[in-house]
Amino acid sequence: MRNSSESVADLPQGQNAYDRLLEDIRLGVLLPGARLREVELAARLGISRTPVREALRRLEADGLVEHLPRQGASLRRLGYAEVMELYEMRAVLEGTAARLAARAASDLELHELSEINAAMTASDVPTEVARLNRQFHTSLINAAKNRYLQSAIGAMARTLLILGQSTLYDPARSTSAAQEHDLLLRALHARDGERAEELMRAHIEAAHRIRLRQLRAAGLMDGIEPNGGNNVAI
């Protein structure tokens, strides 16, 4: 057990290490199955092993890291069935968020969503488009004003990070996603919760189709049966 002075000193570095490792996972720098050695990570991040260890514990609690016998910590691998289940649940949860936001969002929040989507439409930088897309979805979820829904979506979103880069790195998908956001915004401004939920579900399902297409193109889904019997790193 660490003493109190060590804990206080390492808390900021531990948070920093956690955030930086999350970003590496999001960007695909760390791939499913990657070994996560404390010494190597500490050297790369320029910090001691203690905050790295703390960050790995948090990532394990998030369900992103697993410890394997005689191998140590590694980034989890997701199987076909789990990816299908995650996107199905995302459609349900974010669809619900859109329905609630149609009722609960303030005019200011809806204006902010419109501005974010306009910036997303205007950008041709993949990293910026992906960032704005995350901001759009986060702002909409916050506008739903349901803390339990926010918590559930947050836990699911962390697991989805294992899939790596956003589907919006595909220019065609970034264009269609912004158009889907625009349709959703119209339903939100009209305070039509049922239509907003329907459009959000369709939006998530479109992202799901692109994700599966990308995984197949990368050769990561060969031989996987729809029953999820095989557990393949994707």
Rank of each mutant, 00 (worst) to 15 (best):
A97L: 09
R90F: 09
L100P: 07
R131H: 13
T121F: 00
A91I: 12
T121G: 03
D124Y: 10
I116F: 00
A102R: 00
E128W: 01
L86K: 06
E94Q: 15
L149D: 10
S139C: 04
T127I: 14
R76T: 12
L93M: 10
N117I: 00
I153N: 03
R103Y: 02
E109Y: 02
H111N: 06
L113N: 03
A118W: 03
T127H: 14
K145N: 13
A91C: 10
S139Y: 05
T138Y: 11
L132T: 02
D124M: 05
D107C: 00
V83H: 06
L78G: 10
V92L: 13
A152D: 12
V125I: 14
G95F: 07
A105F: 04
I116Q: 09
Q150H: 08
L78D: 06
L93T: 03
Q150E: 15
R147C: 03
L140G: 09
I116C: 05
R131G: 03
N142G: 12
Q150S: 15
T127E: 12
S139V: 00
A130E: 11
Q150L: 14
L93V: 10
R103F: 08
G95S: 06
V125Y: 04
N142D: 14
R134I: 07
T127N: 02
S139A: 15
N117L: 00
H137S: 15
I153D: 06
G79F: 08
V83C: 09
A119W: 07
A144I: 02
E109C: 08
A144K: 03
N146R: 11
R90K: 13
E128N: 02
S123E: 00
A81E: 13
I116V: 11
A104L: 07
I116N: 06
T138H: 14
A119V: 03
A81H: 10
E85Q: 15
T96W: 07
L113F: 01
A119N: 12
Y148I: 11
T121E: 02
A97P: 11
R76L: 06
L100S: 03
T127K: 07
V129F: 01
I116E: 08
E85K: 12
K145P: 08
A102W: 04
F136D: 00
A105V: 05
S151C: 06
I141D: 04
L140Q: 04
K145D: 13
N146I: 03
Y148W: 10
V92M: 11
A98C: 08
Y87I: 01
R103E: 11
A104R: 14
R134V: 11
E112P: 00
A152M: 11
R103C: 02
S106I: 01
E128V: 10
Q150P: 01
A144R: 01
S139N: 08
R99V: 09
L108Q: 13
Y87R: 03
E82F: 04
M84L: 10
T96C: 12
M89F: 07
I141Y: 01
Y80S: 07
F136H: 04
A143Q: 01
R99F: 11
A118I: 02
L93K: 05
T138M: 09
A144W: 05
T138W: 09
L93A: 04
N142Q: 15
E109L: 10
T96I: 08
E112T: 13
A130T: 07
R134E: 13
M89G: 12
E88P: 03
L132Q: 10
M84G: 10
E94C: 08
E112V: 14
